[in-house]
Each structure stands twice: as structure tokens, then as C-alpha cells.
Design a protein around this nucleic acid. Structure first.
Lengths: 204, 204, 204, 204
DNA sequence: TATGAATGAGCGTTCATTCAT
DNA sequence: AATGAATGAACGCTCATTCAT
């Protein structure tokens, strides 16, 4: 069998396992993933899982990577739809929100590794976040050139800050969903828009 | 034995257990707390633990409450040291940061219940968060009266937003501590100050 | 304090405990009785329970005795209402059935000690069963004298047999209640009457 | 390894566990079975037990099923040895008795599920009881055709009644073994024969 | 490469009984 | 006599990982 084919086959199983894990997590949540079920739903023996992933943790990390890549793609697409830097930043925050809404599991995975200091975070994973950061830095620089963003702010620091704030707001929206919907004056969109307003006004 | 003394003794055991749990969590992290070790380190039989707490979860909740109360106290003290609303908000964010630095476990406990929708969150626990919210709302209102904060922003929404953003930034500082310290232009304080600047400029 | 009064008081507590245990068992079943709840519902400290009963088992035994005494009383009353031996036996079986229906817990207690060979069965408890046996023996003898019951059967053996068969039928009615009510031709009364018929025809 | 062999091996372990459980129950009684000891006596890790049985309860159920099947076989064999319906019924009751004597644990298991309404009673288990019922019904019908059993009695009701009475008598013999052997006029056989006589006379 | 049987430490919780006060 | 805090063995069950085949 040619090596390529083998690699393809290997890749297939790898994906198979990841898909099973993902399906299971969507059904039962991030924390109740267990190898027995992954084995069952991937139609692979339990031992086989360990030929593709050194541990359960590694499966999680792989999914987290996938989630980050998807988020990056989401951001890139959102940015392309806009011309003005400010609108692009806005678009990114909105993309973040829709991503959270449409892929709660992926967002949870992203947060999970953002919040907890996992020792398994690989360079590959960090690289994606770096690309997100660079995307944002680029926009900020453009905004500063266009005079729409305060030039005294260091772009990379701002990008960093923006990421932290936005993740914080997203978590708030997720956890306090009930509180928000019960409040008369509140809605998720109002909170989100308020955040965007404060942020954009803050960087002018 | 007078009833008072007994109550004191009971209180002592309660604290003993909580202290043991706290020490253990500081050593091994929030998630690896287990009743066997709590029993061992508190010099109490495992069954005894259940005379003071109905479940392991309740121990966690008690510690989370303690953490929240401490955080509130921290905030109140910080606010008292300042006269101007803007300075007070700044002080709160700084207090949040020093709290995180000095009591990482407590901060983790606060976050834990902020991020995960625990069913065990009691009214008592929510009440503390409410008091924090009200503290902030009060300051915002003062700031609006003094013309230092944009009057068009709803105070309670802003308080909400501020909480989300700040928690997000704190997590960022915690998780990305290594990244930050490696960066040449970055330091935790710079990120923090940048956040504060953006936030305060944003609400002017 | 006169000794009598003390005894009375002692008796009161004894009854208190038994009542609490009974109430609890009615609520949650024979097997889930636990000393914590007995303590709580009797308003007596847990240690106090052990001043009146050497063990939980002893509480069970006391209740089983009470149940047997009540059953005996039930039988005696039933017998008094009839003149003819055959009718009296019939009445006893019916009394057994109504007792089961009205006091399922008591019946369970009676059965419990009939089915399992409890080491705690006291002479007092056996004595009650003996009195039931003797009651039945008396009736059988009368029936034999009256020519209504086959004289060749030894009365005490028959009494023994009758007790076994009846308890068996009662259990059947209890456990197979669902099966019986689903069956088109069956009802508890039909089974009971059939049993009575077979039994009475069998001893003629 | 051929699949057949594996199945055999799997079957062997299943049996191993069941045997360990059985041995333990014979030693210490139905109720004190625990998984630690089953693990120890089967030379299998505790986790392994759960590969073959979903729960402790399932082990009990499996043994109860085994007991029922054995009892049915016992009955069928007893019936084959006789030609006359009345003799066959007699043989069944005797078979019941010898079964109790030879396999007290199995009998306890049969009773256990007869007395307590276990939610785990499977269709397979009910099916065996049904076959016993049908065996008896068939005999009764034959007896009625031959004019040896009262035709006015509904066979299925009678079968039902007979099962209840017989189980009751067996329990009596088991629990009151001591009482019986102490009595001058009594012996287990006398009680049994008396029961059979009453029953058979009753259905004529 | 693939299997899946086997492992066994680990977990949270219960509860009858004891005993110092 | 009365208390109730304290005990600690016991229990059923889970699950990531290993390894002989």
C-alpha cells in the first residue's frame, strides 16, 4: 500500500475519533466525555484510540485547536465584509458572539483553554491565537493610520486587551443568560452593544 | 457546657474543614479536592465532614461565598480611599487585580461560579454579587451626576458590562502570565493600565 | 419521684421511639428506616434511642411484636363474630386479608419475621404466634367435634398448615397485585375466595 | 483467536462471577453479598465485574433466573415420572420441597423475587414462571378431563392459588424448621403431607 | 495496526453505634 | 437519664490507561 494511502487512512481514523468526541460533547457537555463512549461511537476499539491520541487530554486539545481555527476563519470572513477598521473590529466582536451562539461547544473549548492553564497547550494552538492577534493588530494599525483609533495605544497591547474583554463579555452572556432575560431593561444584544460602544469609544 | 461555647466549637470545626479544603485546593487546584484528603488534613473522620456540610459541593460553595465576601470587602475598602467616581472605578479594577494576585484560589472560586452555571449557587451567594453590582452602580451614577461619565449609558448595564470585561481581563492576566512576561513590550501592569484607559475613555 | 411515675415516663419514651419508627416506615418502607430519622422524629437524641433499645434491630422486633399482637386481636374479634367453626376459619382468613390491606406495614413486619429467620425473635414474639395457633387449633377441634372438619387431621398440624398457606396467599396477593388486576378473569377477591374454597373443601 | 473461543472465554468469566457470588451467598446469606468480595473470590478486579454485569442487582437477577430455570427443570422432571394428574401435582409439591432442601439459596432467590416486587425482574425471568404456571395449568386441565379435579374451578386461578400456598408452606418449613423438629408430633414431612392432603382433597 | 478484556485506585456518601460530657 | 458530636468501615460504581494477542 502506498504511503500516501496509509496516511490518508490514518487521517480518517483520527477524524473519526475527533468526530465521535465532538458529537458526544455536544450531547453531554465538555466534562463528561469518556473514552468508552468515544470508542463506541467511533466504532474503534478503546486501545485504538490510544494509537492516535496519547491521552484523553490530547483529544480535547485537538478539538480545542479545531475550535480556534474555526474561530479564526470566522473572524477573517467577518473582517473581509467590512472596509473600515472600526467596522471591522465591530464585526469581529459580533462574529465572536454569533460563534458562541452557533457553536457553544467550540466556544466552550476555546474558553476552556483560555481560562485554565493547560499544560497540553501546544505551539500549534498558540499559533492560531497569534494569528487572531495579528489579524486584530493589523486592523488596529490601519485604524490608527486612518486616524480612527488613538495612535498612542500600542496595537499589540490593545489587541491583547480586546481579546480578554471580549472573552469576558461572552462568558457573561453565556452564564448570565437567565439573569439577562429576566431583567426588564436587559437583553443580550443590549449588553453586547453597550460593550461595543464602550470599547470603541475607549479607543478613539 | 453553655450553648454559646458549643456554638463556638461547632463554628471552629466548620472553619477547620474549610481551612483544610482551602489548603488542599491551594496545593492541588480547585478540581482535585477530595473528601478523603479533607478528612485527613482536618484530622476529622470522613463522616464528620458530613455533619457540617451536606456534600463536597457545599464545601466548594462555602469557600466561593467566602471568596466573594472578601472580594466585596476589598472593593469597598478600595472605594473608600477615593473621592472621585472615576478614581473609584479605577480603584475597583486595581483591587480586583491585587485580589487575584494575592488570593489566586479565591479568585478562581469567584470565576468558577461566574463561568459555570452551578445549581448550588445560593441566594446568599448571589446577594454578594448584587452588592458588588450595586456598589458599582452607585459610583457610576455619581460619575454621571458629576458629568464624568456619559449619562446616556444605563448604569446597571454598564455595571454588568464592566464586570464581564474585568473578569475577562483578569483571566487573561492569569492564563497568559507566561506569554506576557516573555513579551518585550508587555507586562501585566501595562495590559491592566491599558484596559483601564480604554474602559474609562469609553465611558466618558 | 415515685418509681411508678418514672416507669410511666420511661414507657412514654419507649412508645415515642416506636411511634416515630412506625411513621417513618409507613412513609419510606421497612428497609429504609434509619436511626437518624428516628431520632429526629421522636425529638430524642440519637444516644437516647440506645437507652431504650439495644439496637435498631430491637426496634424492628418491637414493632413486629406489636404487629403480631394486633393481628391476634384482629383474629380474635373476627372469631367472636361467628358461631360456626367453618365460618370462623373463613373469618380468620378474611381478617388476615383485611389486616394486610389496612396495615400493609404491620403485615410486612409479620411476614418479615415469618420469612427470615431473625435471631432476634424473642419468646414473647413466639408466644403471640402460639396464641394464634391455639386459637385456630381450638376452632379446628370444635369443627371436628361438630363433624364439619375431617377428624383424622391433627389439629395442631392443620393449624400450622393453614398459617403457612394463608401467609403464602397473602404474599401472592401483595406481590402480584399488578398481575392480578391486569388479568381479565382475575381479581384479588376471586383468588382469595378460591383459596378459601379449596382450603375448606380440603379439610372437610 | 476464533470468535467461538472468545465467546467461550467470555462465558467462562460470566460463570466465574456467578459462581463466586453464589458461593458467597451460600456462606453469608442473600443480603450480605458485596462486590468487593465477589471480586476477591472470583480473582477478578472489581472493574471487571462490571464488564459482565451492569450492577450488583444484575448478578442477583442472573442467579434468580438460574434458580427459576432449575426449579422449572425439577418440576418438569417430576411430572414426567408420573402419569396421573393428581400424582403429578403431588410430585410438583414434593419437587418443590426437595429443591428447597437441596438448594436453599436457590429457593431463597426464587422467593426473594416472588416476595419483593423487584423492578429488575426481566421478561426472561417472568417467562420461566409462566412456563411453570402453564405446566401446572396443563395438569389441572388433564385432571378435570379425567374427572379427578373439580371442573368448576378455573385452572389458571387454581394454578395461581397453588403457587401461593406452596411457596407459603415452603417458607414455613424453612423458617420454622427448629420449631417443627422440637415438636413431638411434628416433622417437616408430616406438615408437607398434610398440606398435600388438604390441597388435593380441596380440589377434588 | 488493531483489539478489547482487564485493571484498580479512586470517589462521594451513608449510617449504626459509641462515649465524653 | 440524656445528649449529640464523632466515628470509620462499608458500599456500589467509574474510567483512563495498559497490554497480551
Amino acid at each position: 500500500m502506498p504511503k500516501e494511502k496509509q496516511t490518508t487512512k490514518k487521517q480518517e481514523k483520527y477524524t473519526l475519533i475527533l468526530d465521535a468526541a465532538e458529537t458526544l460533547m455536544k450531547k453531554k457537555g465538555l466534562y463528561s466525555l469518556n473514552m468508552d463512549e468515544v470508542s463506541y461511537f467511533s466504532n474503534l476499539a478503546k486501545g485504538t484510540l490510544y494509537l492516535y491520541f496519547r491521552s484523553k487530554e490530547e483529544i480535547l486539545a485537538a478539538l480545542a485547536l479545531k475550535a480556534r481555527i474555526l474561530l479564526l476563519a470566522h473572524f477573517e470572513k467577518a473582517v473581509l465584509n467590512e472596509n473600515q477598521p472600526i467596522q471591522q473590529l465591530k464585526a469581529i466582536i459580533h462574529a465572536n458572539y454569533t460563534f458562541l451562539k452557533n457553536n457553544p461547544l467550540y466556544y466552550e473549548l476555546v474558553s476552556f483553554y483560555e481560562i485554565n492553564d493547560r499544560e497540553t497547550e501546544t505551539e500549534e494552538m498558540s499559533a492560531v491565537i497569534l494569528r487572531i492577534t495579528e489579524l486584530v493588530i493589523g486592523i488596529i494599525k490601519n485604524g490608527q493610520l486612518a486616524g480612527e483609533i488613538d495612535s498612542r495605544i500600542d496595537p499589540s497591547i490593545l489587541s491583547f486587551t480586546m481579546w480578554g474583554m471580549t472573552v469576558g463579555i461572552m462568558q457573561l452572556l453565556k452564564v448570565k443568560a437567565a439573569t439577562i432575560s429576566n431583567h426588564p431593561n436587559l437583553s443580550e444584544n443590549i449588553v453586547l452593544d453597550n460593550y461595543i460602544k464602550v470599547f470603541l469609544d475607549g479607543i478613539k
